[in-house]
């Protein structure tokens, strides 16, 4: 049992090590910023722009991270677990979205009102759960902080009557800044040397 825990810890440390570059944080932060700009300007092009960097995730990882700390492919069972967690959350988010659109006809008026007032808190909580679930599986502990921060910022925004896009943008920018900070620290800690690029065993 304790050996299993040790191996689990080792696996989580390896995950965290591979994601110490902050690239994933930058992409998530940028997506939330895109969502916030979309809300502010009511222009869905920004929603698309927010998710666009996902396309560049693997090429950037291969160009920036792999030459510095090497390449690793994690076992498919863990990737599947993360996929399941995220798929459940996506289904829940879609469910809420559909309820918001057709809700007034399907759910009691009181619940519908609650949804329209606190839908962002609900969205934020689900995204926060996604962060916490991913942190639990991968051991990337800063994702726990994101989960708490997201819910707190949205709750504070609603409580202080701040316009929705402002606190969504704030949350996205904070994650983006943390990502950039991690990237800068990573680049300083692992400078690209001639030797690092050579990946030969002999």
């Amino acid at each position: 049992m304790s050996q299993d825990q040790d191996f689990k810890k080792l696996q989580q440390r390896t995950y965290a090590s591979f994601h110490q570059d902050g690239l994933i944080d930058m992409i998530i932060g940028w997506a939330i910023v895109g969502f916030g700009i979309n809300m502010a300007l009511d222009n869905s092009a920004f929603l698309f722009l927010g998710w666009l960097p996902i396309v560049f995730y693997v090429p950037i990882k291969n160009r920036v991270t792999v030459p510095r700390i090497g390449y690793v492919k994690f076992s498919s069972s863990n990737s599947l677990l993360i996929g399941i967690v995220l798929a459940i959350l996506l289904v829940l988010l879609l469910g809420i979205f559909i309820l918001l659109i057709v809700g007034p006809h399907l759910i009691p008026a009181q619940l519908s009102e609650w949804f329209s007032e606190y839908y962002l808190l609900l969205f934020g909580s689900l995204v926060g759960l996604g962060f916490a679930g991913t942190a639990l599986v991968t051991g990337i502990s800063r994702f726990y902080a994101y989960a708490v921060m997201l819910v707190l910022i949205i709750a504070a925004g609603i409580w202080l009557n701040i316009p929705d896009p402002i606190y969504v943008l704030t949350a996205g920018l904070l994650i983006l800044v943390v990502g950039i900070t991690h990237m800068v620290r990573f680049l300083r800690k692992h400078p690209l040397t001639n030797e690092a690029g050579v990946n030969e065993s002999e």
Binding site: L10, T14, V66, Y71, V72, K73, A196, N199, E200
Partner: peptide, 18 residues
């Protein structure tokens, strides 16, 4: 062996770093 058992595959640089 412990590192390799928790991943599907890794390259030489990654193993060296870890």
């Amino acid at each position: 062996m412990a590192y390799l058992s928790i991943v599907e595959s890794a390259d030489f640089t990654f193993l060296m770093n870890q």
